[in-house]
């Protein structure tokens, strides 16, 4: 991978080394290596079908890689049993591309689901207070009694993020946070991602093909091509990089 000398003073919270994954003989991830530092927003940028979503699912253990090493907060997740992995997952928030809200539950129940189950909080007043505070942080306190089907795409994304934030995660993983949203809502989601980092002091990996999202949210970007990390740098560095594949990608964004 072609890398730029970005100097990091913060400790590493997530490390991926030599990650490989194939499906039915098709190699989706090829020797992926990356580091995520504390309080850093790392954007994984690339066209659709380049293995970005598979990478993020390998990181959280939803997909088992063929080879490689994933260390999160000092623990190798590939060597863990299910109980230990579930404990570690409580420190990681995963915001899904389609929000993945539990559609048979209200917004309140969506947020309290993991709290009751994982943290064993049963006190109704305490739960209510935590839900209201978190919804306030994403600007949707009024949606507390609504069902997911009553929410717009942007609201669902925000509730999806709130569902992660209520567990006070140390690392956030965003899978295509602006996919399917209009430019104004996308911009609001980008602002929310930056706010989350500041308010909750999280580190984040943001998977996206949206250059506007990458520009607004990133401290550092890894550009993925054909299942491997092709280039790394800040947005400004990559924008002026003389690379044919990346230039095509950026030029297409400028035209549209």
């Amino acid at each position: 991978m072609n890398t730029n000398p970005i100097i990091h003073t913060q400790p590493v919270v997530l490390r991926v080394e030599h990650l490989y994954k194939s499906f039915d003989g098709r190699q989706v991830l090829k020797d992926v290596n990356l580091l995520l530092h504390h309080s850093e927003n790392l954007v994984i940028l690339g066209r659709s079908g380049m293995g970005k979503s598979v990478l993020i699912k390998c990181i959280i253990g939803l997909i088992q890689p063929d080879e490689g090493y994933v260390n999160i907060l000092g623990e190798n997740i590939l060597d863990m049993d299910v109980k230990a992995l579930n404990r570690l997952r409580q420190s990681i928030g995963f915001s899904f591309q389609g929000s993945a809200l539990y559609d048979s539950m209200s917004v309140r129940d969506n947020l309290t689901f993991a709290l009751k189950r994982n943290l064993g909080i049963r006190d109704a007043d305490q739960l209510e207070q935590m839900v209201r505070e978190t919804l306030q942080a994403v600007g949707l306190e009024g949606a507390i009694d609504q069902m997911p089907s009553e929410l717009s795409g942007g609201m669902r994304k925000r509730i999806g993020v709130a569902r992660c934030l209520i567990l006070k995660p140390k690392i956030m993983l965003y899978d295509e946070p602006t996919a399917g949203l209009d430019p104004v809502t996308s911009s609001e989601i980008n602002e929310l991602i930056v706010e989350v980092k500041q308010k909750y002091d999280t580190s984040a990996i943001i998977i996206t093909h949206d250059i506007a999202c990458a520009k607004a949210t990133s401290d550092r970007i890894i550009y993925m091509e054909d299942g491997s990390c092709h280039l790394e740098g800040t947005f400004e560095e990559l924008e002026h990089k003389n690379d044919p594949q990346l230039s095509t990608f950026f030029n297409y964004f400028k035209v549209h």
Partner: peptide, 25 residues
């Protein structure tokens, strides 16, 4: 149909990612 639609919309993955055992639940 219910479990299948939860599977399609990644709700089962979301449960697992939040540290809940979706199989048991």
């Amino acid at each position: 149909a219910e479990l299948s639609s939860m599977n399609v919309t990644e709700q089962i993955d979301a449960m697992e990612a939040s540290g809940t055992n979706p199989f048991k639940y």
